[in-house]
Design a protein around this nucleic acid. Structure first.
Lengths: 169, 169, 169, 169
DNA sequence: GATGAATGAGAATTCATTCAT
DNA sequence: GATGAATGAATTCTCATTCAT
């Protein structure tokens, strides 16, 4: 568990979980522009309770995203242990994009890799062309697949750079 | 020139250009959330002057984007008339993404295709990994290239759907 | 003619009339909250032209009302010379209220006598109970009619007071 | 008491009362066009405090008017139970107009009946001819009194119509 | 003399964050 | 520890009035 840090009284711990859960729900629905007050109401706590735990709205968002990230990490681990790596990566890629489509805010707040790129574009299209992102996944996967010893001219961003790109907003 | 419409007094025309120029700069830097006041300050005019010309913040944004769009259209036409279509499309793709990187707001306001996707992700990375988008362009181009008669399983969004996806925000 | 003051060039005089006419139309339709710019547009002149003539929006309103008032004065004179004073006053009263109903702004800007009172209330009712003011006219006329030598306990406001009550807004 | 609803913390309740009191005073003096900022200043709170309680300026106005209305209702009930109906109605009529005179905004926001009519006209005169409305009350009461079996030719507006006329602005 | 462009001074409303209870 | 009340700082937008052309 990411959010636990120090020992908390039982009720405090429960509140913390409720806050994170509410944040996920509210931000997923309304995007990052939802107000802290909305989250507080959904969580059934006062706004001050949230600010006691998370000095800043951004801190709340970050904590919530860390939770979402865990599920992605789990997916990634499953993919890493799969027998068919090609299928596994395809499934992983699609799965993450699907999560992005379902949770606008998670997508908006994530770092800028190609999966995220497809998620962002897919999110825009989802309303008028639902599922359009699947084609983009196909294309990107095809582009990533090794074909005839071709080498890409440009290097990928480092993990650190990818991580830091989350803060760009 | 899009914004000229009727004959304007010399000073008014100058102001109009300053406003548009300031809007481009400010929105490019800070994204669409930048305030009209910021644009006004940069342009050296009062906010009311802006609202006289553009009744709504959205109108201002739209006018500015129209200008950006023109340059993309010009690029597209050049590409269409090139001798080597593969090189032309690569150049076009890169050129548009570069424009996106230089103008966050233009990117944010555009429809959700793969070029846009790369732009959005590249924008996030630009600060910590400048130029990282070039690799993404490579990958997507590779994925788009015909290889061995492969067919994509999913259909692309229609032009209308792409267009409407601009409104998703 | 109220508005003529000094000798004006022919075109200036024409503009002046157009402004007053536009003011009447615009304020009658939209109430006193209509903007000076609206009046200018309707008159086909620049706003500055209006402000050259009328240093203040209030001045414009006042001038326009004076014109409306003239027609009321004409009615009053006709009534004064009629044979049947009772019928004449009834007709006058109704006529003025009708003018008020047709021109919200004239009513709103007039002094506070009983005719005006009926006009103000009638105006509010006109939308949902058109013509309701006619009953109020009846009642007030009945109340004004001499019955059995009764004397009213309170004195009427003086003409000066009535006039000054126009400024209460 | 209308405004109490749920249990409020002592200080909040005190502030709420101060806000309502300030609103009454400010709107009574300056009419409905007074700004919320004026009310806030008078109440000694920030504007945001007002908007927390009343999401809209209209809501604030409505709450305040409800309070005023209560006193009118009380008067009406007293009149209904009086022995001498003629005197009672006269007193009621005068009482309501007096309330109107003391509270411009209440008068402006009320429906368009004859009492309201007298209030509106009286308000305009009050500054230059204080108490002039008393004569108008006399006249209207006289007009309403049954004299010699006379019948009014026009019907009164229905309660619904009167109610809806409040919204005429 | 006429024009319309420019603007300062608001107005309503929102929200992250702090503070008294 | 928790609460929700209070608020300062913004934001979009309007308009009477002044000024350069």
């Amino acid at each position: 568990m990411v959010v636990e840090a120090t020992h908390l009284r039982a009720d405090a711990q429960r509140n913390l979980e409720r806050i994170l859960e509410a944040a996920r729900a509210v931000f997923a629905e309304e995007g990052l522009e939802a107000s802290v007050a909305d989250v507080a109401e959904r969580a059934g706590v006062g706004t001050a309770t949230i600010f006691r735990r998370f000095p800043t709205k951004d801190d709340l968002v970050a904590a919530m995203l860390e939770q979402e990230l865990e599920s992605v990490v789990a997916r990634a681990q499953a993919a890493a242990e799969a027998n068919d790596p090609t299928a596994a990566i395809a499934e992983f890629f699609s799965g993450v994009v699907e999560t992005f489509i379902e949770d606008r805010c998670f997508c908006e707040a994530s770092g800028g890799d190609l999966i995220n790129a497809v998620g962002l574009a897919g999110l825009r299209l989802e309303h008028t062309a639902p599922g359009a992102w699947r084609r983009y996944v196909e294309i990107v996967l095809a582009g990533l697949a090794p074909h005839g010893g071709r080498k890409l001219a440009h290097k990928p961003p480092t993990p650190q750079q990818l991580h830091d790109s989350k803060r760009s907003r």
